[in-house]
Design a protein around this nucleic acid. Sequence first.
DNA 1: GTAATGACCTTGG
DNA 2: ACCAAGGCCATTA
Length: 113
Amino acid sequence: MAKITNDFFDQVYQVVRLIPKGRVTSYGAIAVYLGAKSSSRVVGYAMNAAHTQKEYVPAHRVLNRNGQLTGKHHFETPFLMQELLEKEKIKVINDTVQNFDKYFWDPTEELKL
DNA sequence: GTAATGACCTTGG
DNA sequence: ACCAAGGCCATTA
């Protein structure tokens, strides 16, 4: 399936894999990094197809702008996402990451195109 | 080919 | 300050 969007998806997956351990980011940040800030939804959609990729994608490190685990329900188990985040020493309360701004990992700042 | 949906974000009242 | 609606882009039915 050589589609045009495949490239965009691949970019998203690459960025997500580049997220350091114990760090999180938002869909919008990735969208901005890819130059499609308006396509924040597409980033989330890419995550939806993330589990279809060969390589594992740490989608649990990708949250919305509010720091909420909106996509936890899309994981194999709703608890898996929070479990993984807690393993990264990240406190998750009520499906929300604490100190989100502190753990926030901005690709545009770190990768600095 | 058209219509509806979605792991979102921004702006208006 | 809080609540509601629209917009953007790609995928699926």
